[in-house]
Amino acid sequence: MLGSRRLAIAAVAAAVVTGVAVALIVMLPGDDTAPVTAAPTLRVVQPGAPGQSARTLSPADVAGLSAPPHNAADTAFMTKMIPHHRQALEMTALVAGRSRSAEIAQLAERIKISQQDEVALMERWLVDRREALPSPHANHVGHGELMPGMLDQSDLTRLAAAEGPAFDRLFLDYMIRHHQGAVTMVDQLYQAGGGMEPASDRLARDVNADQQIEIGRMRELLAKLAA
């Protein structure tokens, strides 16, 4: 049934390309009683900047309209952000047994879930575009370059060795740094000409907003610990 409908669309598109205006009334099995009208596009304009006049697009122009495709900067952003997020999961895994703060435990749980969610979205983005997924070990220190805000081996060792309030402060310090790194990576994405593809843009803006929210929460907690 989808096939027949696709044919109808192709017919309209062909008619538009050849300059023949047609209006198809298609009654489809499976729809309700409303007639399905595939109307021809009569007029397509593209305005200019303020002060400029609009121009009329030809059927060929319209047929060529597409949203910006993803580019190498988008792919690099996703393949780097995934291991970046995974290191946050390594950090949250250290909380149990080291922190005695319920607030830190809650925060860590939230960060864990949100980073997992975003990792899943980024993996889906890569798979949908037939791009390679990063190695499952790419977050481990020594595998590949260290992204902004990421902890090196000595940081991780220090964190793992800390306990109680000292752990809490270190955890917050490191996680703020880590999240700020993610924000930096979003900036770098745009500086490199990425984020123009709508889905990549949306993901990057979500990552940016989420990290900012969590940074704010962590700063509050840090101030509370210091008081």
Binding site: M1, D31, D32, T33, A34, V36, T37, A39, T41
Partner: peptide, 21 residues
């Protein structure tokens, strides 16, 4: 574009596909 549909107390007067572009 060919999903089944259901309605109650409404009359489906028209459907217009998204135009090319």
């Amino acid at each position: 574009l060919d999903a089944q549909s259901a309605l109650s107390n409404l009359e489906h007067l028209a459907h217009l596909d998204k135009p090319p572009g």
